[in-house]
Amino acid sequence: MLRDAMIIFRYQLRLLLREPVWIIITMIQPLLYLALFAPLLEPIAKTQGFPPGDAWQVFVPGLLIQLGIFGSMFVGFGIIAEVRWGTIERMRVTPASRLGLLLGRVLRDTLVLLLQAALLTVIAVAFGLRVPLAGALVAVAIVGLLGVALSSLSYAAGLWLKSEDALAPLLNMVSVPVLLLSGILLPMEFAPPWLRHLASANPFSHVVDGSRAAFRGDYGASSLTIGLCAAAGLAVVGLLIAKRTFERESA
């Protein structure tokens, strides 16, 4: 199974590296996020109810999670193309394990995401972020787990729907509430109680809180443990759902 995963991983990575435009875009993206959001940061940080910590320490983890969500969520479009080309069917007739075929792809997506996340953090340091190395690594690991979860789910959705026209609205429908309720864009500290309850049911909000704790260097915080568990749980659930979908006959 792992061997199959590595074969697919290397194959998919090579295909990706052949697209120079794609490489430039993925690397510029983090820079763009920072350059556009940083000017808003100082004034907002002075607002009442802003989460604890230095403005950068609050903002950058949120950006990382957002990168994790948007960087992984759209991989399902790729698998729809593969279904159309017939490559998925061709690989399904080989003895390769279904989980291996899935994992290889997820691994590729996660590697790319981790590189982007690391790059974003480094650039943020240049902009003025102060973060302990261990905390940054933990936060990047959380993003990686999130990437595993979301790219798996996106592949499952792509295989299920088999149509770009159906996948796009689904992703839109899911991403906006998840993003708003995670406290990435606007801190949930501002929210009325009912919205706050809703947010606390959203695993992503715990993931965001966890990475913020990591960035503060607050390793004992319960929010960090909860965040890590939430991310790991999402990854496991995502993989299981995607595995089942890959094993379905019509996939």
Binding site: L15, R18, W85, G86, T87, I88, E89, R90
Partner: peptide, 9 residues
């Protein structure tokens, strides 16, 4: 297969 199955890239 009848339709083949190759990645154009």
């Amino acid at each position: 297969s009848q339709a083949g199955g190759t990645n154009p890239g």
